[in-house]
Protein backbone atom coordinates (compact mmCIF):
# COMPACT_ATOMS: atom_id res chain seq x y z
CA UNK A 1 0.00 0.00 0.00
CA UNK A 2 2.61 2.44 1.07
CA UNK A 3 4.70 1.67 -1.97
CA UNK A 4 1.80 2.07 -4.30
CA UNK A 5 0.83 5.36 -2.78
CA UNK A 6 4.41 6.51 -3.02
CA UNK A 7 4.54 5.62 -6.69
CA UNK A 8 1.31 7.41 -7.33
CA UNK A 9 2.43 10.62 -5.74
CA UNK A 10 5.74 10.43 -7.51
CA UNK A 11 3.97 10.04 -10.83
CA UNK A 12 1.59 12.83 -10.01
CA UNK A 13 4.31 15.26 -9.09
CA UNK A 14 6.21 14.40 -12.22
CA UNK A 15 3.22 15.12 -14.43
CA UNK A 16 2.48 18.28 -12.50
CA UNK A 17 6.02 19.51 -12.58
CA UNK A 18 6.77 19.06 -16.26
CA UNK A 19 4.75 21.97 -17.67
CA UNK A 20 5.78 24.12 -14.75
CA UNK A 21 9.42 23.38 -15.23
CA UNK A 22 8.92 23.90 -18.92
CA UNK A 23 7.52 27.34 -18.30
CA UNK A 24 10.31 28.17 -15.89
CA UNK A 25 12.86 27.12 -18.47
CA UNK A 26 11.39 29.59 -20.87
CA UNK A 27 11.22 32.36 -18.31
CA UNK A 28 14.83 31.80 -17.32
CA UNK A 29 15.90 31.70 -20.95
CA UNK A 30 13.95 34.84 -21.78
CA UNK A 31 16.73 37.39 -21.16
CA UNK A 32 19.20 35.43 -23.28
CA UNK A 33 16.61 34.83 -25.99
CA UNK A 34 15.62 38.49 -26.06
CA UNK A 35 19.22 39.49 -26.50
CA UNK A 36 19.71 36.92 -29.25
CA UNK A 37 16.55 37.83 -31.13
CA UNK A 38 16.75 41.59 -30.87
CA UNK A 39 20.47 42.23 -30.66
CA UNK A 40 21.74 39.55 -33.05
CA UNK A 41 19.02 38.61 -35.51
CA UNK A 42 17.23 41.96 -35.49
CA UNK A 43 20.02 44.05 -36.98
CA UNK A 44 20.87 41.24 -39.40
CA UNK A 45 17.28 41.17 -40.61
CA UNK A 46 17.37 44.92 -41.15
CA UNK A 47 20.57 44.52 -43.17
CA UNK A 48 18.89 41.76 -45.19
CA UNK A 49 15.86 43.93 -45.93
CA UNK A 50 18.02 46.97 -46.80
CA UNK A 51 20.01 44.91 -49.29
CA UNK A 52 16.83 44.48 -51.39
CA UNK A 53 15.93 48.19 -51.44
CA UNK A 54 17.00 51.17 -53.53
CA UNK A 55 19.54 53.67 -52.18
CA UNK A 56 18.35 57.04 -50.81
CA UNK A 57 19.67 60.15 -52.48
CA UNK A 58 21.97 61.05 -49.58
CA UNK A 59 22.54 57.88 -47.58
CA UNK A 60 19.75 55.79 -46.20
CA UNK A 61 17.31 53.85 -48.38
CA UNK A 62 14.08 54.37 -50.27
CA UNK A 63 11.32 51.82 -49.78
CA UNK A 64 11.21 50.29 -53.22
CA UNK A 65 12.30 46.78 -54.09
CA UNK A 66 15.54 46.54 -56.04
CA UNK A 67 18.06 43.81 -56.80
CA UNK A 68 20.63 46.40 -57.90
CA UNK A 69 22.60 46.07 -54.65
CA UNK A 70 23.04 42.33 -55.01
CA UNK A 71 23.67 42.64 -58.73
CA UNK A 72 26.52 45.05 -58.13
CA UNK A 73 28.21 42.83 -55.58
CA UNK A 74 29.15 40.45 -58.37
CA UNK A 75 28.68 42.36 -61.62
CA UNK A 76 29.54 45.83 -62.80
CA UNK A 77 28.22 47.92 -65.62
CA UNK A 78 30.99 49.60 -67.51
CA UNK A 79 31.22 53.24 -66.43
CA UNK A 80 31.66 54.41 -69.99
CA UNK A 81 29.24 52.06 -71.70
CA UNK A 82 26.38 50.83 -69.44
CA UNK A 83 25.54 48.16 -72.01
CA UNK A 84 28.68 46.22 -71.12
CA UNK A 85 28.09 44.07 -68.06
CA UNK A 86 31.00 42.12 -66.68
CA UNK A 87 32.06 40.30 -63.56
CA UNK A 88 32.95 42.84 -60.88
CA UNK A 89 36.65 42.09 -60.77
CA UNK A 90 37.35 44.97 -58.40
CA UNK A 91 35.03 43.48 -55.77
CA UNK A 92 36.35 39.96 -56.36
CA UNK A 93 39.94 41.20 -55.99
CA UNK A 94 39.06 42.87 -52.69
CA UNK A 95 37.22 39.76 -51.45
CA UNK A 96 40.20 37.63 -52.29
CA UNK A 97 42.63 40.06 -50.66
CA UNK A 98 40.72 39.91 -47.37
CA UNK A 99 40.41 36.14 -47.46
CA UNK A 100 44.05 35.55 -48.30
CA UNK A 101 45.19 38.06 -45.68
CA UNK A 102 43.11 36.20 -43.09
CA UNK A 103 44.46 32.82 -44.18
CA UNK A 104 48.04 34.03 -44.04
CA UNK A 105 47.46 35.68 -40.67
CA UNK A 106 46.01 32.42 -39.36
CA UNK A 107 49.02 30.46 -40.62
CA UNK A 108 51.54 32.96 -39.20
CA UNK A 109 49.73 32.92 -35.85
CA UNK A 110 49.72 29.12 -35.84
CA UNK A 111 53.44 28.94 -36.60
CA UNK A 112 54.31 31.52 -33.93
CA UNK A 113 51.64 30.39 -31.49
CA UNK A 114 52.58 26.73 -31.34
CA UNK A 115 56.07 27.11 -29.83
CA UNK A 116 54.81 29.90 -27.56
CA UNK A 117 51.98 27.77 -26.19
CA UNK A 118 54.31 24.78 -25.86
CA UNK A 119 56.80 26.88 -23.93
CA UNK A 120 54.11 28.01 -21.50
CA UNK A 121 52.60 24.55 -21.13
CA UNK A 122 55.97 23.03 -20.24
CA UNK A 123 56.78 25.55 -17.49
CA UNK A 124 56.30 24.54 -13.84
CA UNK A 125 52.70 24.92 -12.75
CA UNK A 126 53.26 28.01 -10.60
CA UNK A 127 54.97 30.06 -13.31
CA UNK A 128 52.50 29.20 -16.09
CA UNK A 129 49.97 31.73 -14.88
CA UNK A 130 52.57 34.46 -15.08
CA UNK A 131 53.31 33.59 -18.72
CA UNK A 132 49.59 33.44 -19.55
CA UNK A 133 49.13 36.74 -17.84
CA UNK A 134 51.88 38.27 -20.01
CA UNK A 135 50.16 36.95 -23.15
CA UNK A 136 46.93 38.71 -22.22
CA UNK A 137 48.52 42.08 -21.45
CA UNK A 138 47.96 43.48 -24.99
CA UNK A 139 44.21 42.94 -24.53
CA UNK A 140 44.18 45.63 -21.89
CA UNK A 141 44.89 48.28 -24.46
CA UNK A 142 42.64 49.49 -27.25
CA UNK A 143 43.39 48.05 -30.70
CA UNK A 144 43.91 51.49 -32.20
CA UNK A 145 46.48 52.45 -29.58
CA UNK A 146 48.37 49.19 -30.05
CA UNK A 147 48.44 49.80 -33.79
CA UNK A 148 49.83 53.30 -33.29
CA UNK A 149 52.42 51.81 -30.94
CA UNK A 150 53.61 49.49 -33.71
CA UNK A 151 53.79 52.50 -36.02
CA UNK A 152 56.15 54.16 -33.54
CA UNK A 153 58.40 51.11 -33.61
CA UNK A 154 58.65 50.58 -37.38
CA UNK A 155 58.31 54.04 -38.90
CA UNK A 156 61.26 55.65 -40.66
CA UNK A 157 62.10 57.76 -37.60
CA UNK A 158 60.97 54.99 -35.28
CA UNK A 159 62.65 52.83 -32.67
CA UNK A 160 64.14 50.18 -34.98
CA UNK A 161 65.45 52.52 -37.65
CA UNK A 162 66.94 55.10 -35.29
CA UNK A 163 68.63 52.34 -33.28
CA UNK A 164 70.09 50.70 -36.39
CA UNK A 165 71.28 54.04 -37.70
CA UNK A 166 72.83 55.04 -34.39
CA UNK A 167 74.87 51.84 -34.24
CA UNK A 168 75.90 52.26 -37.86
CA UNK A 169 74.24 49.16 -39.32
CA UNK A 170 72.39 51.17 -41.95
CA UNK A 171 72.60 54.69 -43.39
CA UNK A 172 69.09 55.25 -44.65
CA UNK A 173 65.99 54.05 -42.83
CA UNK A 174 64.46 50.76 -43.95
CA UNK A 175 60.95 51.33 -45.27
CA UNK A 176 58.77 49.13 -43.09
CA UNK A 177 55.69 51.24 -42.68
CA UNK A 178 53.10 50.91 -45.47
CA UNK A 179 54.37 47.51 -46.60
CA UNK A 180 52.87 44.02 -46.49
CA UNK A 181 55.38 43.22 -43.79
CA UNK A 182 53.83 45.92 -41.61
CA UNK A 183 50.34 44.51 -42.17
CA UNK A 184 51.37 40.98 -41.19
CA UNK A 185 53.34 42.22 -38.21
CA UNK A 186 50.32 44.14 -36.97
CA UNK A 187 47.84 41.35 -37.66
CA UNK A 188 50.02 38.68 -36.05
CA UNK A 189 50.64 40.87 -33.01
CA UNK A 190 46.95 41.60 -32.56
CA UNK A 191 45.65 38.08 -33.11
CA UNK A 192 48.44 35.91 -31.68
CA UNK A 193 46.92 35.63 -28.17
CA UNK A 194 43.74 34.24 -29.71
CA UNK A 195 45.81 31.37 -31.12
CA UNK A 196 48.05 30.84 -28.10
CA UNK A 197 45.29 30.55 -25.51
CA UNK A 198 43.30 27.66 -27.08
CA UNK A 199 46.55 25.91 -28.03
CA UNK A 200 47.74 26.22 -24.46
CA UNK A 201 44.43 24.85 -23.19
CA UNK A 202 44.86 21.79 -25.43
CA UNK A 203 48.52 21.26 -24.48
CA UNK A 204 47.77 21.67 -20.80
CA UNK A 205 45.64 18.53 -20.96
CA UNK A 206 48.26 16.62 -22.93
CA UNK A 207 49.50 13.62 -20.95
CA UNK A 208 53.29 13.71 -21.03
CA UNK A 209 53.37 9.90 -20.70
CA UNK A 210 52.24 9.55 -24.32
CA UNK A 211 55.42 11.29 -25.40
CA UNK A 212 57.52 9.10 -23.13
CA UNK A 213 55.84 6.05 -24.61
CA UNK A 214 56.64 7.32 -28.10
CA UNK A 215 60.32 7.81 -27.26
CA UNK A 216 60.41 4.38 -25.60
CA UNK A 217 59.28 2.92 -28.92
CA UNK A 218 62.21 4.63 -30.68
CA UNK A 219 60.19 7.41 -32.28
CA UNK A 220 62.26 10.38 -33.41
CA UNK A 221 61.47 13.87 -32.14
CA UNK A 222 59.81 14.68 -35.44
CA UNK A 223 57.69 11.52 -35.29
CA UNK A 224 56.57 12.33 -31.76
CA UNK A 225 55.61 15.84 -32.87
CA UNK A 226 53.89 14.70 -36.04
CA UNK A 227 52.06 11.61 -34.75
CA UNK A 228 51.44 12.32 -31.08
CA UNK A 229 51.54 16.02 -30.21
CA UNK A 230 49.92 17.51 -33.29
CA UNK A 231 46.91 15.15 -33.36
CA UNK A 232 46.33 15.66 -29.65
CA UNK A 233 46.43 19.47 -29.77
CA UNK A 234 44.40 19.61 -32.98
CA UNK A 235 41.25 20.87 -31.23
CA UNK A 236 43.35 23.79 -30.01
CA UNK A 237 44.47 24.53 -33.55
CA UNK A 238 40.89 24.42 -34.80
CA UNK A 239 39.60 26.73 -32.08
CA UNK A 240 42.57 29.07 -32.52
CA UNK A 241 42.21 29.20 -36.30
CA UNK A 242 38.53 30.08 -36.04
CA UNK A 243 39.23 32.77 -33.45
CA UNK A 244 41.93 34.32 -35.64
CA UNK A 245 40.33 33.88 -39.05
CA UNK A 246 36.92 35.41 -38.32
CA UNK A 247 38.00 38.75 -36.87
CA UNK A 248 40.85 39.14 -39.34
CA UNK A 249 38.55 38.86 -42.36
CA UNK A 250 36.76 41.98 -41.19
CA UNK A 251 39.92 43.75 -40.05
CA UNK A 252 40.51 47.10 -41.62
CA UNK A 253 42.04 49.37 -39.00
CA UNK A 254 45.34 47.48 -38.99
CA UNK A 255 45.73 47.15 -42.80
CA UNK A 256 44.74 50.78 -43.22
CA UNK A 257 47.06 52.27 -40.63
CA UNK A 258 50.08 50.01 -41.13
CA UNK A 259 49.63 49.06 -44.79
CA UNK A 260 48.85 52.62 -45.79
CA UNK A 261 45.37 51.90 -47.09
CA UNK A 262 46.34 51.91 -50.76
CA UNK A 263 44.47 48.66 -51.22
CA UNK A 264 41.00 48.19 -49.87
CA UNK A 265 39.96 45.42 -47.54
CA UNK A 266 36.45 44.06 -47.46
CA UNK A 267 35.78 46.13 -44.36
CA UNK A 268 36.84 49.34 -46.15
CA UNK A 269 34.70 48.49 -49.16
CA UNK A 270 31.61 48.07 -46.98
CA UNK A 271 32.40 51.23 -45.03
CA UNK A 272 32.74 53.14 -48.31
CA UNK A 273 29.18 52.23 -49.35
CA UNK A 274 27.69 53.41 -46.05
CA UNK A 275 29.80 56.58 -45.98
CA UNK A 276 31.07 58.48 -48.97
CA UNK A 277 29.56 56.10 -51.52
CA UNK A 278 26.02 56.62 -50.13
CA UNK A 279 24.86 53.22 -51.33
CA UNK A 280 23.46 51.39 -48.30
CA UNK A 281 21.83 48.52 -50.24
CA UNK A 282 25.14 47.62 -51.88
CA UNK A 283 26.88 47.91 -48.51
CA UNK A 284 24.28 45.62 -46.94
CA UNK A 285 24.60 43.07 -49.74
CA UNK A 286 28.40 43.14 -49.42
CA UNK A 287 28.17 42.66 -45.66
CA UNK A 288 25.86 39.67 -46.08
CA UNK A 289 28.13 38.19 -48.76
CA UNK A 290 31.00 38.46 -46.31
CA UNK A 291 28.87 36.74 -43.63
CA UNK A 292 28.01 33.87 -45.98
CA UNK A 293 31.67 33.55 -46.97
CA UNK A 294 32.86 33.36 -43.38
CA UNK A 295 30.21 30.85 -42.32
CA UNK A 296 30.82 28.81 -45.47
CA UNK A 297 34.57 28.79 -44.95
CA UNK A 298 34.12 27.67 -41.34
CA UNK A 299 31.72 24.85 -42.17
CA UNK A 300 34.05 23.67 -44.89
CA UNK A 301 37.06 23.90 -42.60
CA UNK A 302 35.50 22.00 -39.71
CA UNK A 303 34.19 19.31 -42.09
CA UNK A 304 37.55 18.81 -43.75
CA UNK A 305 39.35 18.65 -40.43
CA UNK A 306 36.84 16.13 -39.04
CA UNK A 307 36.98 13.98 -42.16
CA UNK A 308 40.74 13.79 -41.86
CA UNK A 309 40.33 12.62 -38.34
CA UNK A 310 37.92 9.77 -39.09
CA UNK A 311 40.31 7.07 -40.36
CA UNK A 312 42.48 7.52 -37.32
CA UNK A 313 39.57 6.71 -35.04
CA UNK A 314 38.45 3.81 -37.20
Amino acid sequence: MDDMAGNKTEQATEIKETPKRHLWNWILCAPALTVLVFAASGPLLIVLVYSFLAPGSFGGITWSFSLEGWFRVFFSRDIFDPEIVSLNTAHLTIFWRSISLSLQTTIICAILGFPTAWFIATRPQHTRNIWLFLITIPFWTNLLIRTFAIQEVIRNQGLINTTLIRFGFIDTPIQMMYTDFAIFLGMAYVFLPLMVLPLYAAMDKLDIRYLEAGYDLYASRWQVLRHIILPLVKPGFIAGSILVFIPSIGAYVTPRLLGGGRSMMLGNLIELQFGQGRNWPLGSALALTMLVLVVGALVLYIRTVNREEEPRHG
Binding site: P55, I79, A90, I94, S263, N268, L272, Q276, G277, R278
Partner: peptide
Protein backbone atom coordinates in the same frame (compact mmCIF):
# COMPACT_ATOMS: atom_id res chain seq x y z
CA UNK B 1 29.50 70.62 -53.80
CA UNK B 2 27.47 67.56 -52.98
CA UNK B 3 27.18 65.56 -56.18
CA UNK B 4 24.14 63.83 -57.64
CA UNK B 5 23.49 60.17 -56.92
CA UNK B 6 24.45 59.36 -60.52
CA UNK B 7 27.81 61.12 -60.24
CA UNK B 8 28.51 59.62 -56.82
CA UNK B 9 27.72 56.21 -58.21
CA UNK B 10 30.33 56.57 -60.96
CA UNK B 11 32.87 58.08 -58.58
CA UNK B 12 32.43 55.16 -56.18
CA UNK B 13 33.11 52.77 -59.04
CA UNK B 14 36.26 54.63 -60.06
CA UNK B 15 37.34 54.80 -56.43
CA UNK B 16 36.76 51.07 -55.92
CA UNK B 17 38.68 50.32 -59.10
CA UNK B 18 41.51 52.59 -57.90
CA UNK B 19 41.74 50.93 -54.50
CA UNK B 20 41.08 47.35 -55.53
Amino acid sequence: ESCSAEATNIYTQIWTELLQ
